[in-house]
Amino acid sequence: MPSPLSVRSLRLVVRTFSELCITVGTLIVLFVAYVLLWTGVKAADAADDGIATLNSRWARQPAAPSAGAPSAPSASPSPYRDGKPFATMRIPRFGSGWEWPVLENTEARTLQKGLGHYSGTARPGESGNFAVAGHRRTYGDPFKDFPKLRPGDAVIVNDGTTWFTYRIAKEPYRTVPTDTAVVDPVPRRSGFEGPGRYLTLTTCEPEWGSSHRLIAWAHLDATRPVSEGKPPDLTG
């Protein structure tokens, strides 16, 4: 028969251990809820904000036919501001409501608010490669359906003055994270030969991992001034 004191201390140890286990379990559940749900809420909020910012900015300045930012005081178009939205992207394959802002640079903070434009790559519609990265999972899952992209799918970018309709050239291509040649002006392995007006989308592969990347390439198919209304791919 053990003494009452040792029974009490044993109970204390067992109880404290159980409480710690429950606490850790609760923490894990909360963290999963944060990653799966709350990041999506935050990203949807930030994306709505970004699109609203763009719409009000575009409403203030008259639409100019050129592809560059018309308010630029200098001869060249004004540079995009880091971490700020400058265009919207729609991909009908991902659903009619799928619209995300495209922000400048691909830092983690930027990609939490929408899609990120690789700094230094071409602007929408420019000769070269307009390269954009996006989350496949978490933060709103913008590129969740990335593997469903097929040749001929439209990727429509609006920079406030022009609708740029790009066409996916081939099924998504899987590569390693260090393969930066996929965002070259003439992307390697894209099948494109010679300079052109290209678009590259990148996201992670596998869905919940980071060992590889999925790449989709497109080429500029049509442009349409915003004043003429939405392109046929969005209205049809």
């Binding site: 989350h135 999972r137 978490t138 590569t175 994270p177 260090t178 930066t180 990148t202 980071s210």
Partner: peptide, 8 residues
């Protein structure tokens, strides 16, 4: 790793 979406 869910944020690793760029080639860099």
């Amino acid at each position: 790793p869910f944020g690793d979406v760029t080639v860099d």
